[in-house]
Simulated scan of single mutants.
Amino acid sequence: MAHGDVVPSSAAGLVNWNPQVGPSGSIDHPLATTQLELLDDVMREAERFTGLRFSVYLGDLGSNTAASAESLLDSLGGDAPYAVLLAVSPGQRVVEVVTGPEAARRVSDRAARLAVLGVVSACTDGDIGGALVTGVRILADQAGTLPERSTW
């Protein structure tokens, strides 16, 4: 996967994805504090073991979801080449995975599709927080551990 490559849910054969209507929280706070804390912990561990930067976006991606996801990745500045972005728009029924060029060496198209499947499965059950955690865990697992960190 090259910088800016996007794996939309339709590419994974998920055109008929029909999650429950939005997360259980309010519009301003779709995830509970405990869900946010768990997601933060999972992202921190993923970054620690893989050496990549993980970022998650939950919300509307606009009419061009791929371009929006790429723009979000680019907004990470100097971290963008080593970043993996998981963007989920439940209202649009879209999941995008975008990687920077260095991260793309370790996160394959297959890994991105696997993460999309995991996210969609959890979203179908109405668990948006769990979907984000699952997506990050799958992407980190597929990226693998940096060799110098494998003895931890």
Rank of each mutant, 00 (worst) to 15 (best):
12 A>Y: 05
17 W>M: 09
88 V>M: 11
56 V>R: 04
32 A>R: 15
57 Y>W: 12
41 D>T: 14
18 N>R: 15
88 V>K: 13
21 V>N: 05
81 P>T: 00
36 L>M: 14
81 P>K: 13
44 R>N: 13
77 G>C: 02
99 T>K: 06
101 P>K: 09
20 Q>L: 14
64 N>F: 05
87 A>Y: 03
16 N>T: 06
42 V>F: 04
21 V>G: 03
29 H>I: 09
13 G>M: 06
46 A>I: 05
51 G>A: 11
98 V>R: 08
41 D>V: 13
99 T>E: 01
39 L>A: 05
97 V>K: 03
91 G>A: 13
101 P>N: 14
66 A>I: 11
65 T>Y: 09
14 L>N: 03
34 T>H: 10
62 G>Q: 07
79 D>L: 15
19 P>Q: 06
96 E>M: 13
33 T>W: 04
65 T>C: 04
52 L>I: 01
58 L>C: 05
87 A>G: 08
51 G>R: 03
91 G>R: 14
45 E>N: 10
40 D>G: 11
97 V>P: 00
74 D>T: 13
89 S>W: 10
60 D>C: 03
61 L>T: 10
32 A>E: 12
98 V>Y: 00
94 V>T: 14
11 A>M: 10
99 T>H: 07
82 Y>G: 00
66 A>M: 03
73 L>K: 01
89 S>P: 08
11 A>D: 14
101 P>R: 13
84 V>R: 03
57 Y>L: 10
42 V>A: 09
55 S>W: 12
29 H>Q: 11
77 G>F: 09
59 G>A: 06
32 A>P: 04
13 G>Q: 06
82 Y>Q: 13
14 L>R: 12
97 V>R: 03
24 S>H: 11
23 P>W: 10
48 R>P: 00
